[in-house]
Write a protein that binds this DNA or RNA. Structure first.
Lengths: 331, 331
DNA sequence: AAAGAAATTGCAAACGTTTGCAAACATGGC
DNA sequence: GCCATGTTTGCAAACGTTTGCAATTTCTTT
């Protein structure tokens, strides 16, 4: 049994497909009576609009693509949920693509979305993406681009990001207030905007406290548990008594390193992570972390798409102070 | 600048759209020379096949929909990744829909996918889905259905599931071997196949150990951290010295309840969860858990779709024994 | 009651691709 | 040089919807 089409409905009611189309679209040019008759018939016949045909004719799919490094990170999972809530409400279907941090997958995803003539693309680029060139190439006048979290400022379109600078500033300041003296940082990669901004915020907090910029305290490329562990070990050996980590997984690794080095957290060693992953409150000790409000990031990205805005939206971060950084009094 | 179409290429080469279409599809009826010329021109002109038009004409979209309760559960995230790896390889685009465990969202997702004329639907139904009726209604002769993890056996199409019965049997037996005497279970909802099967496996292990079926040991509907905590407290008060939990989040809640009750894990109280979520190895103590191999589940589901198979595929579980259930010697 | 305006519906083309069938062309056997 | 066969390409319709414009009907107004 083939699906019923508007032509089927038209035949049954002695009307034409155009009228059916307009009636179902709520076009005011159609008499209220016929519209009701059409709706009734459509319901009875189990009509479902063919989104494919609709997209082809109108030249615009009611579909939005979301490209993220991976969906099983709390941050991206929630950002997607936030975007979905807005987009579904507005009648859009969402296609989600994972890049697994590979630029090659990112190119494929962009191509796939382009082939499907999506109305918009919400993207947070992979770590491998050194610059914006491949995204610019895939750009298309007919689909709107919105970047979030990890953005290239030289691309057109809206950008929704955290206030990473202030967040990292706050996290580092918190460690300073707790009396830690030599605070290192597990940084990410500098081609990725959010990591760059967090590093800047970290440095600003130290300089505001009268400390000079010390590159030897920065452990670049530490965003996984394993790299966090290795860098954490180095930081401890270098005499750090605290770390601000630009990610939670690397912070977890650093906690392990600290334990292995016989450090007491938070008495001997303090640490603050970023992203407020689920596991941070479960860890022993619970990990202080910078909450990035990913759901709101996703929501704002979707709204920017709907509005067609071209601005930079900043979403606040919130420091969740937990045991890993709260020692009693200073030393 | 509008996208180049096969008609554009045809004009440039003095051919017709049909030839271009066939050439790009690798149709052997086209002379090898012209095919190469077409490919060259297509590359030069930046041609990208319009997937929408292609779908409409051929009546079949190279798109597969995946419906899951939520994407930020390790299990579903990895299942999706597994399915994606197979489907992308085969040229399919994947649309992911979250139901957030609501049957209403599930209906909408089914409708959306149906409207988009997807070639197949991979689904793990929500907890709210009491029966298969709404899925059956949305069924369509042209799109293949594959259920995974949570399945209704009365629906047609392939089903990819864990060997939950044996997994739960193994987990419970492990607790018995460790010398726990009164083993309760945090069960899920009995309309959900995987939870039902796990409960059966749990009972079988107990009965094989000579214990009679005791419904008072079963705490239904315990799958979240909070419900796990409440049920865990009740179980402890009822004198249980161990729990097999059909989920990890509820196991986490039960661990909290045990700690609050002053129990030592694993000496006074043993616990095994299910799903091997990331946090299980981070917890204090690390939580024993039944690994469900979600990536393989997703892979198999995608393969079942591609093969058009109608069989039930069982994926093995693996018990990860950690500290939460490994006490020294029996009592 | 006639003319003009407004409301409602129909006509037909278009979106870009695929595909059955026919046509054109080349090749080979006799 | 003719017919049969095989190879390569073109024609035209179709997928189901949307939409500018025209046509028809109904309602106002004088």
């Amino acid at each position: 049994m083939a699906k019923t089409t508007i032509t089927d409905i038209a035949k049954k009611l002695g009307l034409t497909p155009s009228t059916i189309s307009r009636a179902l679209a709520g076009n005011p040019r159609i008499k209220i009576g016929t519209r009701e008759a059409v709706e009734k018939a459509a319901a009875e016949m189990g009509y479902e609009r063919n989104a494919v045909a609709s997209s082809l004719r109108s030249g615009k799919a009611m579909t939005v693509g979301i490209i993220v490094p991976r969906i099983n990170r709390m941050f991206f999972g929630n950002a997607i949920s936030g975007a979905e809530s807005v987009l579904n409400e507005a009648g859009y279907t969402v296609i989600i693509c994972q890049t697994h941090e590979k630029v090659e997958n990112e190119k494929n995803a962009l191509k796939t979305l382009s082939m499907n003539r999506v109305a918009g693309i919400l993207i947070s680029h992979s770590i491998e993406s050194a610059d914006s060139s491949h995204i610019r190439e895939a750009l298309d006048s007919r689909s709107k681009l919105v970047q979030f979290d990890r953005v290239f400022y030289d691309l057109p379109g809206a950008k929704v990001v955290n206030d990473n600078f202030h967040g990292a500033y706050e996290a580092t300041s918190h460690l300073l207030r707790m009396g830690y003296k030599k605070i290192g940082t597990l940084a990410g990669y500098m081609n990725v905007s959010c990591y760059k901004e967090r590093l800047d915020g970290y440095f600003k907090a130290l300089s505001d406290a009268g400390m000079s910029r010390d590159e030897s305290l920065v452990y670049y490329g530490s965003i996984l548990q394993e790299t966090g562990r290795v860098s954490g070990k180095k930081a401890i050996e270098a005499g750090c008594d605290a770390l601000y980590s630009a990610g939670d997984f690397s912070a977890l690794g650093a906690v392990e390193a600290a334990c292995e080095a016989g450090k007491n957290i938070p008495e001997d060693f303090g640490i603050v992570g970023t992203a407020n992953e689920d596991f941070t409150s479960i860890m022993n000790p619970p990990l202080s972390s910078l909450d990035l409000n990913p759901y709101e990031i996703g929501r704002q990205a979707a709204l920017a798409f709907l509005d067609g805005s071209d601005e930079v939206v900043k979403v606040k971060t919130e420091l969740r102070e937990r045991l890993s950084s709260k020692r009693n009094g200073n030393r």
